[in-house]
Design a protein around this nucleic acid. Sequence first.
DNA 1: GAGGATAGCTCACTCAGTGAGGTAAATTGG
DNA 2: CCAATTTACCTCACTGAGTGAGCTATCCTC
Lengths: 147, 147
Amino acid sequence: MPADPERAAALKLVHRLREVASRLELAVGEFARTTGLHGTDVRALIRLLDAERAGVEATPGWLAGQLGMSSQATTAVIHRLEAAGHVERLRSRSDGRSSRLQVSDSAVALGWQFFGPLLERLIAVELQPSERAVVKRYLEAVTDAIG
Amino acid sequence: MPADPERAAALKLVHRLREVASRLELAVGEFARTTGLHGTDVRALIRLLDAERAGVEATPGWLAGQLGMSSQATTAVIHRLEAAGHVERLRSRSDGRSSRLQVSDSAVALGWQFFGPLLERLIAVELQPSERAVVKRYLEAVTDAIG
DNA sequence: GAGGATAGCTCACTCAGTGAGGTAAATTGG
DNA sequence: CCAATTTACCTCACTGAGTGAGCTATCCTC
């Protein structure tokens, strides 16, 4: 392994990124514990909210892919969320076999209650617009590299 | 909610960050599936390697905290990793009740085999040193905000 | 419309993770 | 310096999240 400071610096950045990912995961777990939900359920809610924001129609199959889980397990997740009143299952317009998943207002409120303060702290990280562009470019490149 | 472009941009950055975290988690799951390990086991290995790199003594209790799991579950994780030959349990010098966890060379090799290409792609993201400093600062600030 | 593909579901099962409780080593207090 | 407490980890018994096998209903293609 040659001493390559460029490479070493890039590697450190990746480690920092993983550290962030790891801590986010812990926060999700903590939220799950306090609300009586399961980690998977919380992750599912988050992805469903992301889909809603992005204007993507969230189906059970789509959710399964997002969670990296089997369709059966995802069915169970949806049942749990439905029973808890966090998700509504609506009929899909385009495909009679599928269904549209919609997050309820109560779930959104619950999420804000816990993640709100965290999100505020995250947003409060001060960056110049030009710096934000750099970070954005990095995160996009990383997203592509993983996907 | 007032139209605040600064805030909106900061929020988008956070969403991108979560997207990255989410995809990293999926990659971990995929690695787990291909190696026959469990997601938790892979996450444990990663944290153990992080500890080694950082020069922190990794104990079962420390690992439990890192994974956000009970000590019993962590004991099971360590047993599985030990049985698979990925981790060795050494006696702790400072505390007779505890033990030091050391990742085996085979586990490191296994990790490189799968994560190596991904890591190379991540490192290959081109940034100027000054840009890297910006990203570093952002990630550090975010880490603090979550912790 | 028949044949195949796709989306999601139920059923039966496994095993990862939890709660209760135990042991041994470290720490504290008289 | 020894009892009482705390800490670190473990075993046991159990629960339930996630999986594989296999089903039904709908969509698509020819």
